Computed example of a mutant assay.
Amino acid sequence: MFNSTIYPTFFILVGIPGLENEHKLISPFFFIFYILAMLGNITLLAVFSASPGLHKPMFIFLSILASNDILLSTSIAPKMLCIFWFNDRLISFDACLLQMFFIHSFTSIESGLLLAMAFDRYIAIYQPLRYGSTITNNLIGKLVIMLLVRAAGLVGTILILIKRLPAFKTNIIEHSYCEHMAVVKLAAADIRINSAYGLFAAFTVAGVDLLFILISYGMIFRAVFNLPSNDSQQRALNTCTPHICVFLSFYVLAFFSFLSHRYGKRIPPYIHIILSDMYLLVPPMLNPLVYGMKTKQIREQFWNVLCKYRGTSEQ
């Protein structure tokens, strides 16, 4: 019997509460999401690496996004699939906090990268003559460091606040991964500070980033519609289409998950959890597909690399 006066040494992840008997039926979908995310993003990285013509700021941002998506998917999917397939629900307290750190850090970095990519498109369209001198490798490096520091600072504070909780009422997490509030709600203590800081961190990341993305696109659209011809307007919009699709998939799922978790009290718990899982697994799967299909340079370089590989293997 779990004693609420003892700090937990492990937690038990339920998986998808209410659908425990259906885990093996549900698991193929999540397995496919994970495999497609891995294959798609690894393929993108391979194409970028093998194609000197893609060693440009826009594609450097994409390679960083692909790397982050691989890490984000791997932070959640393997343990989730172990729960679904093998009923391996135990996770140590420290491993739970580590998973929480990785998941929330990589989502923070993902959001920041989407903002950086919106800024990249803004400069490319609004000030094209200054693009080469503004978006440099040095600037990209500084932006990535800032995103890493922001993620580590915000999420690290979350973990410190959890470590200060004196006791837990139970060690059963009604979730398929170690999500911040799902763990905090188990505490036998006042969690108002943890809850308030969680909202602050979420707003600092998603709220601020989304606000500046929308501002960037407001200025982009104003610049596009001031272009002299419909053809030039169409070309400019086409360069933004993949990014718009990617940030919409990320933020729409994020806000559905957030709103259903906090305000959808009549929604069954398994809906909350499935939305949370999809928010983390679907965008990493979609991102390489969207950019691969919508970006001409990536499609061309992909076929060039594939043809070179076939030619080498036939010799």
Results as ranks from 00 to 15, higher is better:
179 E>P: 01
191 I>S: 09
163 K>D: 14
168 F>M: 07
184 V>A: 09
171 N>A: 04
190 D>H: 06
170 T>A: 14
194 N>P: 03
168 F>N: 06
174 E>A: 15
173 I>G: 05
187 A>H: 09
165 L>D: 03
191 I>P: 04
193 I>C: 00
162 I>L: 13
186 L>G: 05
191 I>D: 04
163 K>W: 08
175 H>V: 00
176 S>G: 15
166 P>A: 09
187 A>G: 09
185 K>T: 13
177 Y>P: 04
162 I>M: 12
167 A>E: 09
180 H>R: 06
172 I>P: 02
177 Y>Q: 06
172 I>S: 01
182 A>M: 11
167 A>H: 13
170 T>R: 11
192 R>P: 01
176 S>W: 03
179 E>V: 02
176 S>E: 02
167 A>P: 04
173 I>F: 05
188 A>H: 14
169 K>Q: 11
180 H>Y: 15
169 K>R: 14
183 V>R: 02
178 C>W: 06
162 I>N: 09
174 E>C: 01
177 Y>G: 04
167 A>F: 06
163 K>V: 00
165 L>G: 05
176 S>Q: 07
190 D>C: 05
169 K>M: 07
190 D>G: 05
170 T>W: 01
176 S>P: 01
195 S>Q: 10
169 K>W: 04
177 Y>W: 14
194 N>A: 10
177 Y>D: 04
195 S>F: 13
169 K>A: 12
171 N>W: 04
182 A>P: 04
192 R>V: 09
178 C>A: 14
177 Y>I: 04
181 M>P: 00
195 S>N: 11
181 M>W: 09
184 V>N: 06
195 S>R: 12
195 S>L: 14
187 A>F: 07
176 S>I: 00
181 M>V: 03
182 A>S: 15
183 V>H: 01
189 A>T: 02
194 N>T: 03
162 I>K: 02
193 I>M: 13
194 N>M: 02
193 I>N: 08
179 E>H: 14
184 V>I: 12
178 C>D: 07
174 E>I: 00
164 R>D: 14
165 L>M: 13
186 L>T: 05
182 A>T: 03
185 K>L: 11
187 A>L: 04
189 A>E: 12
168 F>E: 05
171 N>Q: 11
195 S>M: 11
173 I>C: 04
192 R>H: 14
169 K>Y: 09
169 K>E: 11
179 E>L: 10
193 I>F: 15
175 H>L: 02
178 C>V: 02
170 T>E: 13
175 H>W: 06
186 L>R: 05
184 V>M: 06
170 T>D: 15
168 F>R: 08
194 N>H: 08
167 A>T: 12
164 R>G: 01
174 E>V: 00
164 R>I: 02
162 I>F: 01
189 A>F: 07
177 Y>K: 07
175 H>I: 00
191 I>C: 09
193 I>A: 10
173 I>D: 05
186 L>V: 06
163 K>P: 00
179 E>T: 02
169 K>T: 12
191 I>Y: 05
193 I>G: 00
173 I>H: 07
194 N>E: 14
193 I>T: 15
185 K>C: 03
167 A>D: 01
164 R>A: 08
